[in-house]
Design a protein around this nucleic acid. Structure first.
Length: 916
RNA sequence: GGGCCUAUAGCUCAGUCGGUUAGAGCGCACGCCUGAUAAGCGUGAGGCCGGUGGUUCAAGUCCACCUAGGCCCA
């Protein structure tokens, strides 16, 4: 007689070196090293050569700072796309890129080393800064398990790339879509430079607060009884110096306005603000006429001190918080004023020079700074009797971040791409309809933006970027925008980079014999402005044309939903204008990363989670699983609780693989695989379910529905595998003879599911699938990395539809049996379910089905004995007959009858005899 | 203020054309097992479907408004 210890040795218990504990933070770097050493990316390119292409074109992140969770979400999703399409059999190269030029880097560098007069030196520092963060971010992206051509990314500061930018600018000029016009920008009179929004600080500042009268022309048009009366539109302003540039007065179209009599004068203002003005003036006025803003549109007023008209216009931004509801509008001195000016075709006046001094356009102020001009304007207004009231106000006012002095809005010449001159807007709107937008509301969103956007101002008064390749005639100032000259510049940039612009004189770029078309001048000066960085990144589609292994247009762009305004937008315009069509066929967007409560992460809220922390504490795989489980088309949340859930889900999947691998320890697919027709019913059932799952998963990968995949596979692992199939087949796997056909049958099913689930999950659980793949038994054609594999080919279901219905009945009875067994356990009647005998009550067809499968009930219900009786559907629990077999723990009446093995059941005696 | 979007159990997700008592997995509680063991199995409790009003015989689902949140713009 064998004692329990010896008996245990006769069992086929799971055995694998695949560890239960993942230790992801330590293990992942080893797997990354394997991929690097074997040149996985290069090998994949080789293996897929000649296959149809699938191009995901990477939107370049900005080379500034470490990566945050938004980057992680984005790059992991891209990795899902690229890896899954690669496993579908496409040749799917992935070339990452970086956006390297632009203001944020200039600001950072300026903070570090100060402002250098030498632009070449300054740009060199900017370049170093960008290179540093490209390196850092690249390593962080690699750490996430993202596979790509990291050794050879595209950078917007590469000479080749800069040349493409110039060529695309050239294209816009060539088609006559570029024009030069004045536009107001923040301007620091002390530093004599334009400032970007990001360079503005707001501080309190004391300004005059004045009410000014504009005599209304033809007041009878507003109300007949006003004919011949002295009617004034009253405006309020804190910048009297901008009054010389006044061209309009804006009213809100919907607000109520009134004409108020004050002695023999009549004042127009918003009715809700009249009491405020009355209080300022210290006297009451009489309301003599009411009207709404839109009634006054197109009327004219006289400028209070210049011989000029001021048009009454309408604008939605007029508020009733301050002033009179009638807004002084100077298109050269304010962003909103400028927009309104565009709408009404007003001139952009800005009679102020670099130092903030008035030009000869305003003779009586010439040479005075805007600050000096304020009191002079007041004097004139008083003189002309146009100053209704004067006070002082302290308010928040924009200041220069460098010199801390107050800044002004000043119109300067800028380059614009026209949306309508050559039908760019119209063609863009048509092209949008041809693209597949995921989610589909994206189409409406970008459509509305393109439909309503103003002309694109592409010039920036900065130095870290690509120059606009234009020259000006030294003699007459005319711009030289000759395409051939620009092509020459492109060729030079290709060779020397855009630094050359700041090194060489104009003659270096301009072919000999070039003369000014206007005056015949032969001497030129270079443009100082650089191009908007959105134009640069919008040129990235050229990467697809310049790399041999790519095709144009891209199949997919995939970015956060802020990029409807950003990269999707600029890419569409740049590519469409130059190539004639959209650079992408599909655009996928993902949401924002929020904290667990659904709020945006911000430093001030103190709720920021760094990807690095998660990788250190949990592993990049958990981050990948996070991305997989969420519906990324909406905003996604992350916090401790969610990480905890994900870690547990991860462990379950890992353990399921581990258990499968353990049971395949002695299995060689080539030698031991059992033909499908010899599989047991439960094997056929689970494989049918699994094959159906595999088919759905592949379809879902095609449609980028990762969270559905994750849920489906995870549910299959927990419900179908762990708690059903793998639980019920333990008896077969452990207790049957090692080479018994029923055991090999279960192993065959497990092998298929292990192998194919690893392949199906490889794009998501890239690290763990790889690790598990290494522990999977060898078979012919097994690739050294799971990422070189293809998705499993479709296999037919093994059950007929009738058999499937039979399984529904069996599983219904399994539920009943479990409830009954639980009841019995709670009563202390049994412990382990093998102590039980089940009595099934069934009738008709159900009874036939139970009888048909009853030889498998030990397996399906994990009980020692059973009986089927006629009756209403239910299951009862009795004690199993016989004694417990010490080897398989099943109760059997014959245990004790064999004198040699009195502690074993007949089956185990047979198995044991064979072994001994 | 405008454009677009979101809201179902503690968490992540289902919920078809409007149609029975709104589902799943995890987590939680209780129990079993000790041959997947820092595992495995079973049972159970969790829902004002963000709120209000409307359309309808019937609303998680359609409409309007509101609240909370997100991206972009002003």
């Amino acid at each position: 007689m064998l004692d329990p210890k010896e008996l245990k040795k006769t069992l086929n218990l799971p055995k694998t070196k695949f560890p239960m504990k993942a230790s992801l933070p330590q293990r992942e770097p080893q797997i990354l090293k394997k991929w690097k050493d074997m040149n996985l990316y290069g090998k994949l390119r080789e293996e897929r050569r000649g296959r149809p292409k699938f191009i995901l074109h990477d939107g370049p992140p900005y080379a500034n700072g470490r990566i945050h969770l938004g980057h992680a979400l984005n790059k992991i999703l891209k990795d899902f796309v690229v890896k899954s399409y690669s496993m579908m059999g496409y040749d799917a190269p992935y070339v990452p890129g970086w956006d390297c030029h632009g203001l944020p880097i200039e600001i950072k560098v300026e903070n570090q080393i100060g402002r250098l007069e030498d632009k070449v030196k300054f740009r060199r520092e900017c370049k170093k800064y960008a290179e540093k963060f490209v390196r850092l971010q690249r390593d962080e992206f690699i750490r996430l398990g993202v596979l790509g051509e990291w050794e050879n990314p595209y950078l917007t500061m590469d000479p080749d790339y800069e040349a493409e930018i110039v060529r695309h600018i050239k294209g816009f000029f060539q088609r006559g879509e570029v024009y030069r016009a004045k536009k107001p920008v923040y301007w620091c009179p002390h530093c004599k430079t334009a400032l970007a929004e990001a360079e503005i600080e707001y501080h309190d500042h004391s300004s005059p607060s004045i009410y000014v009268k504009f005599p209304l022309k033809e007041p009878e048009k507003l109300a007949p009884e006003l004919e011949g009366k002295k009617v004034f539109v009253v405006i309020w302003t804190t910048t009297p110096w901008t009054l010389p540039a006044n061209l309009a007065i804006a009213l809100h179209p919907e607000y109520d306005y009134g004409v108020y009599r004050d002695g023999d004068e009549y004042y127009i203002m918003a009715r809700l603000l009249a009491p405020v003005v009355e209080e300022e003036l210290g006297r009451q006025m009489e309301l003599v006429h009411k009207f709404t803003g839109k009634e006054a549109e197109g009327m004219k007023a006289e400028h209070p001190f210049l011989d000029r008209e001021s048009l009454i216009v309408l604008a939605d931004y007029v508020t009733l918080e301050q002033g009179t509801g009638c807004v002084h509008t100077a298109p050269g001195h304010g962003e909103e004023d400028y927009q309104t000016g565009l709408k009404y075709g007003l001139e952009v006046l800005s009679p102020v020079d670099d130092e903030g001094r008035f030009t000869e356009e305003v003779p009586f102020l010439q040479g005075k700074t805007v600050w000096e001009a304020n009191p002079i304007v007041l004097e004139i207004l008083k003189e002309k009797g146009m100053l209704l009231h004067q006070g002082e106000i302290t308010h928040s006012y924009p200041h220069c971040w460098r010199c801390k002095g107050p800044v002004i809005f000043r119109a300067t010449p800028q380059w614009f791409i026209s949306m309508d001159k050559k039908g760019l807007r119209k063609r863009a709107l048509e092209e949008i309809k041809k693209v597949r937008w995921i989610p589909k509301w994206g189409e409406e969103r970008i459509y509305n933006m393109i439909e309503n956007r103003p002309d694109w101002c592409i010039s920036r008064q900065r130095s870290w970027g690509v120059p606009i390749p234009v020259f000006y005639c030294k003699n007459c100032g005319e711009a030289l925008t000759d395409p051939e000259v620009m092509e020459n510049v492109a060729r030079i940039f290709e060779r020397e980079g855009s630094d050359s612009w700041f090194i060489h004189p104009p003659e270096y770029f301009i072919p000999e014999g070039t003369v000014c078309k206007k005056c015949g001048g032969k001497e030129f000066v270079k443009e100082n402005d650089i191009v908007d960085v959105w134009f640069e990144s919008g040129t990235s589609h050229a990467v697809l044309k310049n790399r041999q292994d790519h095709t144009w247009p891209a199949d997919v762009y995939l970015e956060g939903n802020d990029q409807y305004r950003g990269w999707f937008h600029s890419s569409l315009l740049v590519a469409l204008a130059n190539e004639g069509e959209s650079p992408y066929r599909q655009v996928i967007t993902h949401g924002w990363v929020l904290d667990e409560k659904g709020r945006a992460m911000s430093k001030s809220m103190g709720n920021v989670i760094e990807p690095g922390e998660i990788i250190k504490d949990y592993g990049a795989e958990i981050l990948r699983l996070w991305v997989a489980f969420l519906d990324y088309t909406e905003d996604v949340r992350l916090g401790e609780n969610i990480l905890q859930r994900l870690t547990e889900a991860y462990r379950k999947m890992r353990n399921t693989w581990r258990f499968m691998l353990g049971n395949l320890g002695d299995f060689s697919p080539e030698r031991d695989a059992v033909p499908e027709e010899k599989l047991l019913p439960s094997d056929r059932y689970i494989l049918t379910k699994f094959r159906r799952l595999a088919k759905r998963v592949k379809k879902l990968y095609e449609n980028y529905q990762y969270y559905r995949i994750a849920h489906l596979i995870y549910d299959f692992f927990t419900v179908d595998l762990s708690s059903f199939y793998l639980d019920i087949t333990k008896d077969r796997l452990y207790c049957s003879a090692e080479k018994a056909e029923e055991r090999r049958a279960a192993q065959s099913a497990i092998f298929e599911m292990a192998k194919d689930s690893m392949r199906l999950l490889a794009p998501i659980l890239s690290f763990t699938a790889e690790e598990a793949w290494e522990h999977l038994p060898e078979f012919p054609g097994k690739e050294p990395s799971v990422h070189l594999e293809l998705f499993p080919e479709e296999k037919p279901p093994l059950l007929t539809s009738q058999e499937e219905e039979e399984w529904e009945v069996l599983l219904r009875y399994r539920d009943l049996a479990n409830k009954a067994l639980d009841e019995a356990r709670k009563n202390g009647f049994i412990g382990n379910s093998l102590e039980a005998k089940l009595v099934f009550y069934a009738g008709g067809k159900d009874r036939e089905i139970l009888e048909k499968y009853q030889e498998h009930f030990l397996e399906i219900f994990i009980v020692s004995s059973w009986e089927i009786k006629e009756g209403e559907e239910r299951v009862e629990v009795a004690k199993a007959e016989g004694k417990k077999c010490e080897r398989c723990w099943v109760y059997h009446p014959d245990v004790g009858k064999d004198p040699e093995h009195p502690n074993l059941c007949p089956r185990c005696i047979a198995v044991v005899k064979e072994i001994i």
